[in-house]
């Protein structure tokens, strides 16, 4: 009986030990992955991209340290190929990050011009008293690159005649959106060639 117990005990101990070892391993492997994905900094990546031959470090964090890089250069072929794969995986990241920066700059320009257009329309729109009704009307605007309003159309009228009429009057008062004049052509075509104005009345007493 005792024997059985002790053997069971040892078995349990072995299991415990093994699970501990496994867990330790799994933690470390997880850690590596996390650091790779988290600590991969965009600027580090650019540097990496410029010196692809030197890149073979076990961790990207270390790869920017020259000394370490030289050290790992002597490492085995297998490791090199593995890291090269990592580098390959990182390439689209760079593109993405670059396009993100470009996008955020474009976004800024679009937002700025949208705000000017918003102000311009607000300054001529004489909003009627719609009592407590919540209303919205959408107008599609068609611009020439010169900023001239070529055409406009109420694509989604509200169900209030006077509200719709007030919107059409406001747009009739504006024949130019000069704000788009200096815009990059591509940006103009994709954002301001056709855009929508959404006129809203919240139903609150203003």
């Amino acid at each position: 009986m005792n024997k059985i117990l002790t053997s069971l005990n040892t078995f349990a101990l072995i299991l415990l030990f093994l699970s501990f070892v496994f867990s330790v391993f799994s933690i470390t492997t997880l850690k590596v992955d996390e650091t790779q994905s988290i600590k991969v900094n965009f600027y580090e990546l650019i540097e990496i991209a410029e010196q692809p031959k030197r890149l073979s470090g076990t961790k990207p964090k270390e790869s920017i340290q020259e000394a370490d890089l030289n050290k790992v250069e002597e490492n085995s072929e297998v490791k090199k190929s593995l890291d090269f794969e990592k580098y390959k995986l990182n390439k689209p990241d760079i593109k993405r990050e670059l396009s993100k920066i470009k996008l955020s700059k474009e976004r800024e320009v679009i937002l700025k011009i949208s705000a000017i257009i918003q102000d311009k329309i607000s300054s001529v729109w004489i909003k009627p008293n719609s009592l407590s009704k919540v209303l919205a009307a959408k107008v599609l605007i068609n611009l020439a690159p010169s900023g001239e309003v070529i055409n406009f159309e109420m694509v989604e009228p509200s169900n209030d005649k006077v509200f719709d009429e007030s919107v059409l009057i406001a747009i009739n008062k504006i024949s130019f959106f000069e704000e788009v004049l200096g815009l990059d052509r591509k940006l103009f075509e994709s954002n301001f060639r056709n855009f929508k104005l959404v006129f809203k009345s919240s139903g609150e007493i203003e």
Binding site: I110, S122, S123, W125, F195, K196, L197, V198, K200
Partner: peptide, 15 residues
């Protein structure tokens, strides 16, 4: 995904 600009505020002017 056409750009939509919201107009909520009206003018202070009178007709």
């Amino acid at each position: 995904s056409l750009l939509e600009i919201e107009i909520i505020k009206g003018s202070d002017n009178l007709s």
